[in-house]
Write a protein that binds this DNA or RNA. Structure first.
Lengths: 349, 349
DNA sequence: CTGAAAGCGCTAACAG
DNA sequence: CTGTTAGCGCTTTCAG
């Protein structure tokens, strides 16, 4: 099967390669009649149109942006928040006839080479830890980059909210109700396999911007009411692992001095907390108050008090930043405390 | 910023372009020492490694497979079954250092050109109607294709189950309980905007393999017990639209001779049916029995009787077919009737 | 182990 | 409106 190229058709029709190219890419540059003849021959020869790779090499543009996702892609497909972000990006780039290339980053340092090989015009990075090798690889390629939620770079636009302030807001709300025994459930703080109680010095070295800032916000609030950092228990549940959430909740509730409020740093964790509590027969907010973060679709039906942040809009903005010339945001995006039914005054001991 | 290419580095180091290329792509083809010197210079000059587009043009390989999804991507991101499929594909291709290009197909015939422009080594098509123009476009490009669930082509591997038999199985189960007044809820049958009751001749022209086969399976079963096709009501709820599901259920229940069993052709529809029934205070299976299809994660907690099919495995297989040399399946994949709590004997009128 | 030649398939820029 | 020239950046021969 001799490959059919522009030249093949040009020869067949008896015109130059250029006219055939134009017939496909610039219809108004040649007579309707000639164009028709060319297209007819192309069709007969089974020519599928200009090879996109060759066209990209020539034109310097690919028509795709890469989305850097850590862990296996499977993870991204399971997290509702990540999905909402993705959907937003997809929507925005779709409007510019651009496709989305999902680029899974394997744990090792092989990710640099994966980034190098990606056939894209730019990247959006997605809840990556600071200093992730993939970021450097993007920088070296000198491709446009937008980071969402983290890390925050000085050379690339950033899309995200003031995590710290938001966390402080929701913690303030809980403290105002009178709670002083808090359990904080966070997702991964450092890119390692540690789970369980998070010691203060670990927080100092935290590389995931989102969890780090949210935890700082929580502590801002607790300190303000005179609580010592040691008095607030922080549990790392890794990649929002349901089993770890359940165990942490059960263990803490079994202590002589159990928490009266659980601050989950994501709705996904909070929903798991709620399920665990329901199974254990613990009333919410009667016995324990619970808060989330993100305001997923599932949060409202669950009556979850949480922080709303515009996930889909964030994705959309990230996509636009890469495909159009919208101005990068100068500010952090807004968030909002959404009061619902899972927070009340503490149970009287 | 003069672009840095292989040549730039070759000139700087004083070797030929080829040696620099080898330093990156075939480390064992040159002395460790020279390689080190080349890499050092490359690093100093900020060279990110061979341009993936040029390399693709030369090598004929891109390192990405495209996933053809109809409608907006947003839809694919909302359907749990599609998501499971996607996750499976992602997992499989990730193992071959291949990325996933999401290719949304717009309604019009523009989809041919979108397929032509996709920078990929192959495609997997995903619940597409028969004769979708995108399929022809893939054929013309002579790229490998795997179809999942539909359509079934004679020139491309197919991954899917025996929909018809599976539907017959679950319908048999319902009929065996004694049900004769059935309401069948199906998703889109033809690629148009029709919704509501599906007439028999419409079924004959159905272009979506999955819904068509499942409906035929249902009718196989009902005919076998002597029911006339006219006696089983089939409702098309489009893209599994919640509002249409709810309305269909409410309308049918309000009739003088309401259905005693509702056969939903997907779990997503079935779950909506269950929610509607709960709102209406109708007991399941006391007043109405309900069945689903797919066995999503959410099906077990809901106690839904359904057909299990290996969504993630299907995706994985599709991905492998495109990136490795596994043999294409010669058979349809297995399915299994999963009995749970939503089917019982009919309510005595 | 290293280098020179020969394109992969396409299109911008310009001349006819 | 049509054709010619000149590469985009890389890697597969096949000799040194």
């Amino acid at each position: 099967v001799g490959k059919v190229t522009l030249q093949t058709i040009a020869d067949e029709v008896g015109v130059s390669r250029m006219s055939v190219s134009n017939a496909f890419s610039k219809p108004d540059q040649l007579s309707t009649e000639l164009r028709a003849r060319i297209l007819e021959v192309a069709d007969r020869l089974g020519y599928a149109g200009p090879d996109p790779v060759a066209r990209s090499l020539r034109g310097g543009r690919v028509g795709a942006v890469g989305v850097l996702v850590t862990e296996t892609l499977g993870y991204a497909f399971k997290d509702p928040y990540a999905l909402a972000l993705l959907a937003g990006i997809a929507e925005a780039v779709g409007e510019s006839d651009t496709s989305l290339l999902l680029v899974p980053l394997p744990p090792g340092s092989r990710s640099a080479s994966i980034v190098q090989q990606a056939v894209v015009d730019g990247f959006v990075a997605f809840i990556l830890p600071d200093n992730h090798p993939a970021i450097d690889a993007v920088a070296t390629r000198e491709l446009p980059l937008v980071t969402v939620d983290g890390p925050r770079l000085d050379w690339a636009p950033f899309v995200g909210i003031d995590e710290r302030l938001a966390a402080q807001d929701i913690t303030d709300h809980v403290l105002l109700q009178g709670h002083r025994r808090l359990l904080v459930l966070t997702f991964r703080v450092i890119d390692d396999d540690h789970v369980g109680v998070v010691a203060p010095q670990r927080l100092d070295h935290a590389t995931y911007r989102v969890s780090r800032e949210r935890l700082r916000g929580v502590l801002d609030a607790t300190r303000a009411v005179g609580l010592d950092d040691g008095e607030v228990t922080i549990h790392d549940v890794g990649d929002q692992r349901a089993d770890l959430v359940r165990r942490a909740v059960r263990d803490e509730l079994a202590r002589p001095d159990p928490p009266t409020a659980i601050i989950a740093l994501s709705d996904r964790i909070a929903l798991e907390v709620l399920a665990t509590l329901a199974d254990a027969g613990a009333a919410v907010p009667g016995q324990v108050s619970v808060t989330g973060f993100d305001d997923l679709e599932q949060a409202a039906p669950a009556g979850l008090t949480t922080i709303r942040q515009p996930a889909a809009d964030k994705g959309r903005l990230a996509g636009q930043l890469l495909t159009t010339d919208v101005a990068p945001p100068t500010d952090l995006l807004p968030h909002r405390l959404v009061l619902r039914a899972t927070v009340g005054p503490p149970h009287q001991a």
